[in-house]
């Protein structure tokens, strides 16, 4: 089974105070550390597990600058055979344009399955995967938590709301957006990443792809990004842990919970 997996490098924003950019249309990314998007990490692991079980090869793709090659090397250290970085230059892209560009590159690759994460941790859109499926004319499913291949089709598990899962059969080739928890992504060592440098990493310039201005024209525009107002929300309990514990126990008792 030949698999293409699309991945993105995103900033880590938990336990970080975000600042809004000078132009008010994004957050200041300079002080932030970057990692592979969590959902994409599961997608890479799923691709590698399927390759180990069924044979074939895995191609990892990202759109980004040289600094984004670190997640491609990481994917190759996990077991991807080769990778492609599409360099966008300074072009502003929305999910539509990203999916259109990916489609242009992927249609030149032989594959049975395309995997993406459900969404990216930064913009939380959840669009690129299923848009890409439509550009490529593939069967698709979102929020997938299980995959078993069966000839030219596969049995998949889709996570719905309320602890319910849907089991469906889907024709191959198809595109699946992978949910976290589908597998246990393997540990990646520094040595593993160094070894992966021997694997093929191809760079494609956006300008070399046969895409029109219309293809590259964003459908959505971010007008403003802002932080939520500070005034609303929880009443903060101040003090040292002992004092805080007293107050928590007082609240519990007041609400009828006996401890």
């Amino acid at each position: 089974m030949n698999i293409v997996v699309c991945i993105k490098r995103v900033p880590m924003t938990q336990e970080v105070d975000l600042e809004i950019d000078a132009d008010g249309r994004g957050v200041n990314r300079e002080p932030l550390a970057y990692v592979i998007n969590d959902w994409d990490n599961y997608a890479v692991e799923e691709a590698v597990l399927l390759k180990e079980e069924l044979g074939g090869d895995v191609t990892a793709i990202t759109i980004g600058g040289e600094e984004d090659e670190e997640i491609l090397r990481r994917a190759m250290a996990m077991g991807a055979d080769r990778s492609i970085r599409i360099d966008p230059g300074d072009r502003v892209m929305d999910s539509y344009v990203v999916s259109r560009v990916l489609a242009e590159v992927i249609k030149g690759i032989e594959y049975d399955l395309v995997l993406t994460g459900v969404q990216a941790d930064d913009d939380n859109c959840g669009l690129v995967g299923i848009m890409l499926a439509e550009h490529l004319g593939l069967a698709h499913a979102a929020v997938v938590t299980g995959f078993t291949a069966d000839g030219n089709q596969a049995t998949i598990k889709i996570e719905l709301e309320g602890g319910i899962n849907e089991v469906s059969k889907i024709r191959l080739p198809s595109l699946l957006s992978i949910q976290t928890g589908i597998n246990e992504p393997r540990y990646v060592s520094v040595i593993g990443i160094k070894k992966a440098k021997k694997k093929d990493l191809e760079v494609i310039e956006l300008g070399d792809l046969p895409l029109s201005d219309e293809d590259l024209s964003p459908r959505t525009i971010i007008e403003e990004v802002y932080l939520p107002p500070e005034t609303e929300g929880a009443q903060i309990i101040e003090g040292d842990p002992s004092k805080v514990a007293d107050e928590i126990i007082r609240i519990l008792t007041e609400k009828g919970v006996n401890v």
Binding site: Q14, E15, V16, D17, L18, P228, E232, G233, A234, Q235, I236, I237, P241, S242, V244, A245, D246, E247, I248, I249, I251, V259
Partner: peptide, 30 residues
Amino acid sequence: KDKKAPIFRVADYGVVDDLFSIADALKEKI
């Protein structure tokens, strides 16, 4: 620990601290 965590926008009461310090203090009290 993160005073900007979105949970504080929906919680009635918030404590900005290490969860284990609070857990240990609660155990002591009980």
